[in-house]
Amino acid sequence: MRKLVYFIAVSLDGFIAGPDGSDPTGPDGFWPVGQDYVQELVAHYPETLPGPAREALGITAEGTHFDTVLEGRRTFQIGLDAGVPNCYPHLRHLVFSRSLAESPDPGVEVVATDPVARVRELKREAGKDIWLCGGGELAGVLRGEIDRLVVKLGPLTLGSGIPLFGQKSAFDPTVYERTDVTLLDSGTVFLTYDKTVGASDD
């Protein structure tokens, strides 16, 4: 069965973005993005780079881990505000929203139904794993369905912002096993955790 993988950059104090939810790695962002960070993505997670970045870097390789990406409405809006209606045209792209009336791009599927039920359907389909791109609110809703965490731990603290699982996630201790770690000279640490067998998944 396909895994749902939350592949996300997070600060040392547990935030994935600032209070306004804007792109922390964008032109006006505050997230430190070293050259080795980009190289790590290109080498091992090329499908997680947005289409414009893949084009600029000359990347044409198919995904090594994922063939599907999931986004919440606010995360999707970051691309729309940048004039990119589909940041991941090389992946099957689903956006979970009850407020988005129609898709702005034929390659983007808008899902207004229960995220948990839809993800369970996706898991039963054939294919590579499913990338949960964000944001925190959607991750909080889907927390019980997450099989793997790939945390790109950045060398910074924010003080406040959007937490890893959003503001409304319920208290539900879940144990993961660390299965991989990659240390970058620029300070970011890629940490991979798999949910332990028998861990709660609702």
Rank of each mutant, 00 (worst) to 15 (best):
D36R: 09
D172V: 08
E102V: 10
G140Y: 04
T196I: 14
L100N: 02
V119R: 01
V181L: 13
D202G: 15
E55A: 14
A139E: 02
T174N: 08
G83Y: 11
P50F: 11
T75Y: 03
L122M: 13
T182F: 11
T48Q: 12
G29N: 04
I59Y: 05
S97T: 03
Y37N: 12
L183K: 12
C87L: 15
D81G: 11
D185C: 05
P115W: 11
G72W: 00
R92I: 06
L183C: 00
G144E: 13
V189G: 01
A9D: 06
A61Y: 01
Q39G: 06
G134Y: 02
L156E: 08
S11G: 05
R178V: 02
C133V: 12
V110T: 04
S11E: 01
E47Q: 08
A112K: 15
T25H: 14
S22P: 00
G63F: 08
V141D: 07
Y193A: 05
V108Y: 04
R148W: 07
G107K: 10
F165L: 14
V175W: 12
D194C: 01
R124M: 10
T113I: 05
V150N: 12
R124T: 12
L4I: 02
W31Q: 13
P163V: 03
D36M: 07
T174R: 09
P24T: 03
T174D: 07
D13L: 07
V42D: 09
P173Y: 11
K3C: 04
A82Q: 15
A199T: 09
T48D: 05
V111F: 11
Y45T: 01
E145A: 12
G144T: 06
V110D: 07
P155L: 11
P106A: 05
E145S: 09
